[in-house]
Amino acid sequence: MLRFIINRIFQVIPVLLGITILVFSMLHLIPGDPARTMVGIEASAEQIEQAREELGLNRPLHEQFFSFVGNAIKGDLGESIRTSLPVTEEILNRLPITINIAIGATIFATFFGMLFGIIAAINHNKFGDGLTMVISLLSVSTPSYFLGLLLMLVFSLHLGWLPTIGISTPIHYILPIVTLGAQAMGLIARMTRSGMLDVLRQDYIRTARAKGLPERVVIYIHAFKNALIPVVTVVGLRFGGLLAGTVLVESVFAVPGIGRFMVEAVLIRDYPVVQGTVLVVAVSFVLINLLVDIIYGLLDPRVRYT
């Protein structure tokens, strides 16, 4: 098992390195002079020179890269052009909100996705099956930025049950979480359904019944654990995707999370912030996927021993 984990960790390192290189080169891929782009067309030559100095663009490329990587590892992502505050600090201030929404959405999506999937599988080819599958198909196709507006329209503006925007109280989290989780819920429901249908046909389910186990033990323990394995992978991979999805949802509900922060930075060309936020989200995504792989190995003995 340990070897499996170490192996996976080693596979991830080049990807992390690649991400860093790509994020680093963002600044250098900007057409024209990034310093000029950043400070604006009317800026004086001095201002441009100063921006160039701040961005470290005057130093040799390899030196820039190594200091970027070294600083990033130390947790230093530079300073925001707009606020002059350290990017790391700005990110850390906003990260908890984003993580709360992403975790909330994961729990929402997992719980309801599995529930719908199991209901559909047990009622195979009956009404419950059809209904849950239509819901999941719609939830997969509806863009989150539209779903969010629809929910806001119905639950906030018409019914007045929930607040519209901002994130000041826990109740404010409900709509962003549902909006963000809906798509993953649909996917998880589909996977759970097909996984359960497949597993329920297996010989060992017949064995479990032949042992005289109650049907709920057969379904929720013997079948579910087997159906769970592929679902866990999806949940994990989705969680990383959800982190990126918060970008859109935070914009819909005007939530001051890391996603909104990133979009604002792109709009005002605050490149250190753009680089920092992109790096944080991408690295989290890779690390979460690594974790998912390891959990997958723990759950399924077949993965470990082959």
């Binding site: 010989d203 019944r209 042992k211 654990k225 087997n226 759950l299």
Partner: peptide, 24 residues
């Protein structure tokens, strides 16, 4: 019936590989 199965009447199957649950 459930109380009888596995208790008073038991069964073993052809494929011991697929008849045992792989994750337990």
């Amino acid at each position: 019936y459930r109380r009888i199965r596995g208790n008073e009447i038991s069964m073993i199957f052809q494929e011991p590989m697929t008849s045992l649950n792989p994750v337990f």
